[in-house]
């Protein structure tokens, strides 16, 4: 029998098929990323304790009313783009030198001796607690305290010098809105705060390490290198973002 030749497959329509698929994917997909501000909601408290008095100087209140008018630290502000300047001022004013006469949060300076003393003290406390057979939660709490001091120790080493400037632990930024305030303005306030904190941290990180804050953040997200984690911790200690969103009254 004669051998039959196998006919070649015509691939001319392959391009058409591929184009069809390509156009389908072009139409059905969106390129935009999900961008957002991450915030934590405070835990629900069961037993209500009377609120602690906080000095006026430690509060940066940003208020917005139902007519979308702004007030920052008691001053009416018509341009929301200026909020970030106020935030920067709030952190910077007393950073180099404390001045009791102004209305900005104080800084404390933590030296390496203080850090060492605290670590030693907590070590002893943990030992005695373990000997007594205290509740596991108590010991865990002490360990978390220890971690905090450990972070400070590492941060001071990175920061250089003998002292680590630390803002008053109560210093906070609070956003007070009303029921009818538009979300657009609320988001604008969040943006301004985020930009101010970015600017502060970026300046510091550029001065110390000669790198961009964003670069370090992205690199840490990808590679999880410990050295980057320490750098980020230092920045968080120098410029902590304590943002309180106050629930509007009904």
């Amino acid at each position: 029998m004669a051998k039959r030749e196998i006919p070649e497959i015509n691939a001319g329509s392959m391009a058409d098929i591929a184009f069809l698929l390509l156009i389908f994917f072009l139409v059905t997909t969106t390129m935009d990323k999900d961008q957002a501000y991450l915030r934590n909601i405070p835990k629900k408290i069961v037993t209500v304790t009377p609120p602690v008095d906080i000095e006026q100087r430690n509060i940066l209140a940003i208020k917005a009313n139902s007519q979308n008018q702004l007030m920052v630290r008691g001053e009416i502000m018509s341009d929301p783009n200026k909020i970030s300047e106020k935030v920067v001022e709030f952190y910077r004013t007393n950073q180099k030198r404390n001045d009791v006469t102004n209305n900005f949060p104080m800084y404390s300076r933590v030296s390496s001796n203080v850090i060492q003393d605290n670590i030693r003290r907590i070590e002893i406390e943990i030992e005695s607690l373990e000997a007594e057979g205290a509740v596991a939660e108590m010991i865990e709490f002490k360990y978390s305290q220890m971690d905090e001091w450990d972070k400070k120790k590492k941060s001071l080493k990175l920061y250089g010098g003998n002292e680590l400037p630390e803002i008053q632990f109560q210093a906070n930024i609070r956003i007070e809105v009303q029921d009818a305030t538009e979300y657009g303005l609320f988001a604008k306030i969040q943006t301004e705060i985020e930009e101010a904190i970015y600017e502060l941290r970026n300046d510091e990180v550029k001065r110390i390490f000669g790198e961009d804050y964003q670069t370090i953040k992205t690199r840490y997200a990808q590679d999880q290198v410990n050295a980057d984690k320490d750098k980020l911790n230092l920045l968080e200690i120098l410029y902590p973002a304590r943002i309180i969103e106050v629930t509007p009254k009904k």
Binding site: D32, K33, D34, Q35, A36, Y37, L38, R39, N40, I41, P42, K43, K44, F186, A187, Q190, T191
Partner: peptide, 11 residues
């Protein structure tokens, strides 16, 4: 107790 929230914006 779902304590993480994200406010989305266009960047």
């Amino acid at each position: 107790n779902a304590l993480s929230i994200a406010y989305a914006v266009r960047d």
